[in-house]
Amino acid sequence: MKSQNWWLYVVKYLLVISACTFTLLPLIWVIVRSIEPDTGIESYSLIPRSITFENYPAAWNYPTVIDENVTLGTMLFNSLFVAGIVTLVSIFFDSMAGYALARKNFVGKKVLFWLALSTLMIPFYAVAIPMYIITIRFGMYDSLAALIIPFTASGFGVFMFRQSFLSIPADFEQAAKADGANDFYIYWRIMLPMVKPTVATMVVFKVLWSWGQFFWPLLVIQDYSKMPINLGLAMFRGHNITRWGLLCAGMIVATLPILVIFLMCQKWYVEGLSGGLKG
């Protein structure tokens, strides 16, 4: 019995460690490139030929030639700003809609729920052009608003919040109602705090999603001072030559903030998803 357990343990560690090697190996390659001198021709090796930290300041200051006032820091700030507002507002909007779909009885509820789900199914490239036209008609061309406003609600968020509100017992609501509290108060002060884990989950999802945007900012942003970091990284890829050292350094700089956010939310993250999946 004991020896069997021991074997299972070994197999478990072996599996997990090989999976981690699979996921981490390419990232080690990235880190190695970022501390190796950049020649314009990348190397396959996992061991650096020589070590330099020049790539980091070089990548940081790369955009200044195009616009003196812009560094990777500016773009990092833009990304953080956009991700922050998108996350805040969309969690608010999504949870409100999710609350109504979970807790209220009204005409067209089912239709609205399916409409929210159907937004998940729309391929972005399919609607990019009409969406672009609408966005610029609102006068949002070349402004951070164009990166924020269209994404302040998501079907996925509405869905997740609906599921987690469904799993909360009705007693809480009823007690508040008996006290004469209005609907917004119930939603805001009683219900929302109860789904904090879902909120944490959505923070991670939204930040990740907003951070990964590429094609949309490419269409609507022109000014370097308004560019998100993901678009900024494209500078290091030329027609023929890719500046790998700089790209990898830039990438690490761009990834660190999200890693921090993920680590901060990790504890709640798993818990939050389980709320959403109770159904």
Binding site: Y132, L218, L219, Q222, A234, M235, R237
Partner: peptide, 19 residues
Amino acid sequence: VVIPWAEDPHTKLDVAIMS
């Protein structure tokens, strides 16, 4: 306005002309 090749300057120009 500098547009790196990786940012698809041709599509960007098309879209700008259209609008």
